[in-house]
Write a protein that binds this DNA or RNA. Structure first.
Lengths: 128, 128, 128, 128
DNA sequence: GTGGTCTAGACCACA
DNA sequence: GTGGTCTAGACCACA
């Protein structure tokens, strides 16, 4: 289910969070559904249980999953909304990056074109 | 000249690199010009010389400045070009971030509008 | 494993880089294999961790090893190739030195003979 | 007369030594001939007198020039021989570099060919 | 435990 | 004065 890139500079626990959130947003995981147990995922991915635990704790804090002691972790009702809220918070990262790229002399048109490409791949045929 | 934010999560030496590059790109620093000495900058910013040294070494590796041992560091001839090269490499970061934001449900128009705002601040009156 | 000569004029961190590269080229270290941790090597060699760190960072920049934070450093897939690339860059050093020796009046035959000796030691029975 | 490359990583005083020695070996400077004064050369090259002094002192120690207090520095009788002696001492550098290049996988033939090129440029038509 | 960053301070070669 | 290297030791995020 999850795929971890050990060579990536992104911490493993952040990779887990990101992929889990994507599964929720895309509907692969639905509210109320149970997610793999810490132990299970630890074995499956060959990753330290502490790392899985950290990811799940963070997902819990973000309102994406909740824990039922003795039963496991489940996707929250408002998971999708909570994730998108967090996504909006990343706009500030976006601004910072664009500002930096602008300083490096990249044209606005280049960036807009990149965005167009990405959204077309995903969404179908929305023209710019 | 340089301004360091000690609270930032961005390492101090990266802040120095970034600001120095911005000065070169914007023309505040010109090729052949001498940059502050390691010790001088260390005192001015209240930062350990080793940290400055690390930033300067990295800037040297990037072809932005070069060292004349015993004399100091100077802006390279091809500094501007080298920096912009590195900037272009950041487009992949941009793609990754946009992809993530798209997954979080942000509209393309929102991002394009943000870009427009940033470029208008900088560049004057280019309409979207 | 590594041997450091504290008396040498070659900086310790360069000695580490050189020996590590030799181990990779000679096959003592293979891609994917883990290299000693910064701390471990620091203790083994009786050298400050910062110096090891500097060597590893440089080896990383050269594409010889890569870091998985929290796990350690590992030999890169393309390590051997990357090292040989760098080696070829040293031909210019070779040219400069030969030119200098020529100016000092050394015979071409002397130099060729020296090369023959070195390659015979290494490679077996290639006659001059 | 002398040409200094400020950007070079070779220390200025070593550049002075090297060029002075080349002038002697090639006959541009003859035994008994006076070399530029420290002060003169300092002004001509735009270099700190201390640096010139250091180079001359080293050249004196090597037996290439000698000083006549109040008169200046002069090329020694045995200058040419002394320089070539020193040159031979550099064969160990040559050996070390060749050894390193061999470890990086360079072919013997490549190095021999490089030597051939350099000696042909200098000496005329000596075939390999 | 493992790497990443930083401070404090020393010694050296070179200009 | 200027950069280059190194030691000693601390704190942090991450596994």
């Amino acid at each position: 289910m999850l795929q971890i890139d050990a060579m990536s500079r992104t911490p493993v626990y952040e990779q887990i969070i990101g992929q889990m959130e994507r599964f929720v947003v895309s509907g692969v995981l639905s509210p109320g559904e149970r997610v793999p147990s810490v132990r299970n995922l630890s074995v499956t991915l060959g990753i330290n249980p502490n790392t899985i635990q950290k990811a799940y704790t963070e997902l819990g804090a973000r309102g994406v999953i909740y824990t039922v002691p003795g039963k496991g972790y489940f996707v929250s009702e408002g998971a999708k909304g909570a994730i998108c809220e967090n996504g909006r918070a990343k706009i500030s990262d976006f601004r910072a990056l664009v500002t930096e790229l602008a300083e490096y002399g990249l044209e606005k048109e280049t960036l807009v074109a990149e965005i167009g490409k990405i959204y077309n791949e995903k969404g179908g045929n929305n023209a710019i």
